[in-house]
Amino acid sequence: MSKNRQLKEEKVQEIREKLEKAQGVILAKYQGLTVEEDTELRKRLREAGVEYKVYKNTLVTIAAKELGHEGIVEHLNGPLSIAFGYEDPTAPARVLNDFAKDHKKLELKAGIVQGEIFDEAKVKELASIPPKEVLLAKLLGSFKAPLSNLVYLLNAVKEKQESEQA
């Protein structure tokens, strides 16, 4: 086997492993970004715990087909970057979408979130979902409010009974 073929097979294996491990994968067209803009984007993605790579579309196609993600193949044309979110499936979409608002050259193309193929519209919808921590805080807040009201009510009843006894 030639050295070149061996390198390509190793890259396909690497891509397949990343696709399997990631909860959220977003494809974006990055052509036209300056080096400074790309550096800023990579920094924001890294801070959000997102891995950002550029691979040859043919290698990504092979890996995607091996995993049964044929639906993503139609979006693999032109120079594309891939953002892999391993802990928060919405993080890659959110960071890329926020960055694209200020940098019109960056275009979201498609994604795979927990095995489901997302088109551009669904990716933008996904980007509007708050981070997991914010959702948990809202959930806990919604639990806390009724409990706090119950405590205030019980305390008021107790104080009223104490004042009536006095």
Rank of each mutant, 00 (worst) to 15 (best):
G49Q: 01
R16T: 12
L33V: 01
R44I: 08
G68M: 00
K56T: 05
E74F: 05
T39C: 04
R46S: 15
Y30T: 13
E74M: 11
E66G: 08
K56M: 09
V12A: 10
L76S: 09
H75V: 08
E20M: 12
G32W: 08
E37Q: 10
E40R: 14
H75Y: 15
Q31Y: 12
V50R: 00
E51C: 05
G68I: 00
E70C: 03
K53C: 09
R44L: 15
L27R: 02
T39H: 10
P79H: 12
T34L: 11
K56C: 14
L19K: 02
V50W: 08
G24I: 00
L45Y: 02
K29C: 05
V54D: 07
K21R: 10
K11Y: 13
D38Y: 05
K18I: 09
E40K: 12
Q13S: 14
R46G: 03
E70L: 08
V73E: 12
E36A: 15
I62P: 06
D38N: 13
A64I: 02
L41W: 05
I15A: 12
T61D: 11
E37F: 07
K43A: 06
V54H: 13
T34H: 10
G49T: 01
A64W: 00
V25R: 02
V25L: 11
K11G: 07
I15P: 04
K29D: 15
H69N: 10
G49L: 01
K11P: 05
Q13K: 15
G49K: 01
K11C: 07
K11S: 06
V50I: 04
A63S: 06
E17G: 11
I15Q: 06
E66W: 10
R42V: 05
I72A: 08
I62D: 06
T39S: 15
L45E: 05
E14N: 14
P79A: 11
V35L: 11
L67W: 04
Y30G: 14
G32E: 04
R16H: 08
A22S: 15
T58W: 09
Q23H: 10
I26P: 06
K56D: 03
I62R: 14
L19S: 04
E47W: 04
A63K: 09
G78V: 02
G68N: 04
E40C: 07
G32F: 09
L59H: 07
G71F: 04
L19A: 11
L76A: 12
A22Q: 02
Y30I: 13
G24W: 00
L80T: 06
L76Y: 01
Y52Q: 00
L45C: 01
R42T: 01
L19N: 01
R42D: 03
A22G: 09
